[in-house]
Write a protein that binds this DNA or RNA. Sequence first.
DNA 1: CCTTTATAATTGTGTGTGCAAGCAACTTTA
DNA 2: TAAAGTTGCTTGCACACACAATTATAAAGG
Lengths: 144, 144
Amino acid sequence: MLEIFFKECLYFTASRLSRVITKMAEREFATIGLSPTSAFLLMAVYEKESISQKEIAQILHLQPSTVTRLIEKLIAKGVIVNRVEGRMSLISSTEKGIALADEIQRCWTNLRSNYNDILGEKQGDELTLQIFEASEQLEFIEKG
Amino acid sequence: MLEIFFKECLYFTASRLSRVITKMAEREFATIGLSPTSAFLLMAVYEKESISQKEIAQILHLQPSTVTRLIEKLIAKGVIVNRVEGRMSLISSTEKGIALADEIQRCWTNLRSNYNDILGEKQGDELTLQIFEASEQLEFIEKG
DNA sequence: CCTTTATAATTGTGTGTGCAAGCAACTTTA
DNA sequence: TAAAGTTGCTTGCACACACAATTATAAAGG
């Protein structure tokens, strides 16, 4: 049977999981009008007085170009601002952005309980950790 | 630290893993001019004399519209044909498509050894299985 | 038999992400 | 200090996938 074949393929299963969990996350964060990734970006911005796009890309493990696009949208929403300094582009949160912090936190917590209700808290957290470690190893090799 | 936060989020880690493994898979299947998903679709077509788009969608866990688009491209490449029967669209492989079977198999095997060389065979296969099971559970709930 | 409902597939549109090329600013080297 | 290289960011283009609306066919009910 073909299903057995597929279920032994990390590409196949990882893509599928990503699609499912992305849908859950999008639904959750839609309540505050953000995409999950934008929400995470915003969390990265909260951490520091100001942060460069490069740092954001490293934290989120996204390409710089992707970060540029995310930032454009968040600036348009008025939740962050962009101060250009030399060749760097320093991002910081506006009042409006800071005001979102609690709601983002809440969404994140909700999302986590949504999937942990299904997977079991221990299993869900363990799976997450294992996926994290696998990503680290694979990405490390990929980037040489 | 924010990284700790992220590494505890299944959405975040699963998306990241998916991006990394997709890149590996794309590189591998690029050698035979297919996207990984198209290759898997083709494998589903090999299994039966002919198969409907709906069945393909179920096997690959993709939306019907996505399958339509994949099929368009594979027809354009001449590796499958589409025989319309009533409201169903029955797909079967051409000679040219069948000729790809071995190469697809080889790519699949290569991909698997690529990531298992990094993750360890046992760990890689176990992770894949766990991800598979989590997907099943989450998707089951999502669809009610 | 005709109308209603259900199902299979397609089409239009949108989102998230990436790659490659380009631009602008900084750094190094001569 | 000028030329060459490097780095940070942006832009154009492309791909994979999804959702919602539509079309086309089949099935069910009066």
